[in-house]
Design a protein around this nucleic acid. Sequence first.
DNA 1: ATCATATTCCAATAATCGTTAGATTGTGAC
DNA 2: GTCACAATCTAACGATTATTGGAATATGAT
Lengths: 217, 217
Amino acid sequence: MRELKNLLYEQVGRIGKALASPKRLELIELLCQSEKTVEMLSQQAEISVKLASAHLKELRMARLVDTRKEGKYVFYRLAEQGVADLWVNLRGLAEERLVDLRMGLSSMVTHGHDLRGVDRKSILKQARSGEVVVIDVRPGDEFAAGHLPYARSLPLTELKKRLNELPKNKPVVAYCRGPFCMMAKDAVALLQKRGYQAFMLDDGVAEWRARGLPIEQ
Amino acid sequence: MRELKNLLYEQVGRIGKALASPKRLELIELLCQSEKTVEMLSQQAEISVKLASAHLKELRMARLVDTRKEGKYVFYRLAEQGVADLWVNLRGLAEERLVDLRMGLSSMVTHGHDLRGVDRKSILKQARSGEVVVIDVRPGDEFAAGHLPYARSLPLTELKKRLNELPKNKPVVAYCRGPFCMMAKDAVALLQKRGYQAFMLDDGVAEWRARGLPIEQ
DNA sequence: ATCATATTCCAATAATCGTTAGATTGTGAC
DNA sequence: GTCACAATCTAACGATTATTGGAATATGAT
């Protein structure tokens, strides 16, 4: 009786444990973007390959991620959509509740130029009609794995060279991996300096999808 | 840059850590039912008062729970509805992914008499029309803090004495704290032995509310 | 004031976790 | 076959956590 109950909570606790490490959370967020190899993950999370491997092992044991082997590379991916939803849910709760986190987030806002509270469906509509240009500043492979409707890929690393692709007479909305990612912020800063009407969208594809909005590709 | 990012994930990790202990999860589930004192929580989770206090301190530091002092008692409650939603979300993911958990759950099903897959809205409708009788077998204070619409309170501890309040010609649906709670199972077992048409509903109020269905009181 | 009770704080233990270094396995290129 | 590389495993360390017992606070009853 009590033993069975303990077993049940124990099992859920395993998932909780997997969510208890900052590095593992960062890996989960990266995997929300697209499947990636251990090396890509270690580079993007700025940790050693060994450490990444160890954390990924934990995540795999909790069945939050799955692997696929291709040649000498092992590709990790989220085990299912629900994992991304849980991440969005968890981060949302943290944003509300933890003061330090709010301070950290507000310190990275480009003042007066983010679209934090903006209605997402209206952005979608304006993007479809062409009133605004939505750019995805993540690396190209992440865009290919799934992106917002009507968005065009323009990785941050190529932004300077390809500025001519953007109109100056229309608002440009940039998004990246989500609220913790700074690529959109950097992109907006650059664009604004060059005289573009640039805005930032806090959402990434995981947040977008968790709210039931459509994703392309 | 990297430091700020680390800080952000660190903060979310605090919430994850709070969810990493089976005991804390059980406390959260209990607090989904109603506010409770430390002693009530320690008894219902079957742990010592000191241990309960220590775990509750963790939960409070993660801002998942709040306290209210009344005389010499300290009442704990969830900090907000989103915490219950997160619990439901987390447990749902665990149920799908962790094999042992599925085995544990299936071993506690009263064979052929649970309503696991049944449409919740149809139960609601049948309860309103009086086709079925929905009973809440949790302690009375938890019923008072919130319960399913049209449900009547009939705590498991009083069920034997108050059997005459239930009809034998109608289905009786019992629910309790949720899928991990065994009170509804016990109630159904007793009722079936006495010749009632008894069924079990896996949901508790947290699951019910997380799915957007109404709660009374 | 004294007493009983509810809760928390403090200290100490064993157990677990994060991280790194070194060795090992598996794969494709030559 | 050898070589280079991706990824994992093993062992080890210090840091953190769960749990318990004893002391300390706070509150209401007497």
